[in-house]
Design a binder for these strands. Structure first.
Lengths: 230, 230
DNA sequence: GTCTATAATGAGATAGAC
DNA sequence: GTCTATCTCATTATAGAC
């Protein structure tokens, strides 16, 4: 058993390198497609050493998920809407999508993640629930800021649609457009795409603020043509 | 090589049973999670026999994809909007979501599908492109029927959002709500959820028609509470 | 067409020296 | 902490009898 377990102890340079290399690898090729041999090679170590730091692939995935949770928590502390500053909200949204890209294998390879690390199931569930709550609060905040007018009967469906678009935007790029590597433009388009759900509910003031923040089509961020080739 | 290749010849009772059993199995447990042994057991035959009909798992998946394409083509022939009959459109949407449920492993296990049967990549791509075109035509039809008013600047984003929500609704139910088995209610909610994207753009006439068709919240199909437990 | 038995592969995991 | 060498095992695929 040795150690290398105590997270409070020395976090070990190699351990961190393994985690970083594997995250890249999983993102690029898919969690289930990467073998332990490749993982070790990517980290520049031997397979035996990999097993010294993480006895099983399961434990490595769990450790990565922990980092993911921390990154999410850090991003979530900022508030989406701060009074009238929609420009700041635009930056917030883009940061969110960038984070999702950095950890996209967790979004894309859901079934594999659960199969390899079943213990993550409740934590994944908590995270998705948090996301939906996050969206709810954002809508409330925009409403209270006098930016948005959503009929009560339509709020629930709007929240769900916003969650779906945000959670699956990354995979959409891959499936529909064959995007293999993200650019800043992809990230920005994700934010713009998500914001598109709210546009029909913006009132005069909100519309003006959104235009200033570059969140409206034709302003700053262009939407891709619907029939663009891959 | 024998035969069992010629699709024009006798389609073979066993072959059909294998395909049906495997579709169920893949849907329930995930394409990558099912072994050939399980596949044979589910079809009630020996492993050797399975390999007589499909030399490789890849070929079986390709055959299933062919059936999927046929089913999609059959559903796509009907037109989403027929004049003023939105009630009929509601039924159409529900049929669409039912189809997606019947073949959900193709939506959910995308990475695995491509890994096991790389030859499907272009066919998958064609299918997703068709879907987006389908949505575009539906919007045009609703606009021409005088039901919908979508600003030109917002159309492209609406199409993309509609595609995302429809393509990932099934996976959303699993991820977010832990739904393991579909009910008619889930299917209906998907249709209602998708239609929610169009609601803010409905004019008076469209709103009335939508209410009659049970596509508006509070009428017929209830949206789930945003914070519902799994 | 269908079976039983078996081979071939490649992944994850371990042992023990350094 | 790190390496090399080895083991176990599930899974895919094949051979050949019936």
């Amino acid at each position: 058993m040795g150690m290398a377990e105590g997270r409070a102890a020395r976090p070990s340079k190699t351990r961190a390198r393994i985690l970083a290399a594997c995250r890249e690898l999983f993102n690029a090729r898919g969690l289930a497609e990467v073998t332990t041999a490749e993982m070790a090679a990517a980290a520049g170590i031997a397979e035996g050493n990999l097993h010294y730091h993480f006895q099983r692939k399961e434990q490595l995935v769990e450790a990565l998920f922990g980092e993911f949770e921390e990154a999410l928590a850090a991003t979530a502390t900022a508030d989406l809407v701060q009074g009238d500053d929609l420009r700041r909200s635009a930056g917030y949204l883009k940061g969110w999508f960038r984070l999702m890209w950095d950890w996209r294998f967790f979004y894309r390879d859901g079934p594999s993640v659960v199969r390899i690390a079943p213990s993550l199931r409740p934590r994944i569930h908590r995270l998705t629930a948090d996301g939906q709550r996050q969206i709810s609060r954002a809508i409330t905040a925009m409403r209270e800021a006098g930016i948005l007018r959503v009929p009560a009967t339509e709020t629930d469906r709007l929240v769900v649609n916003a969650w779906i678009v945000s959670a699956y935007w990354i995979d959409y790029l891959r499936t529909r457009h064959g995007v293999a590597e993200i650019t800043r433009e992809h990230v920005d388009r994700g934010a713009s795409q998500l914001f598109g759900l709210f546009v029909p509910y913006l009132d005069e003031k909100g519309r003006r603020l959104a235009a200033d923040a570059g969140l409206l089509p034709g302003e700053g961020v262009a939407a891709p043509p619907a029939s663009a080739p891959p």
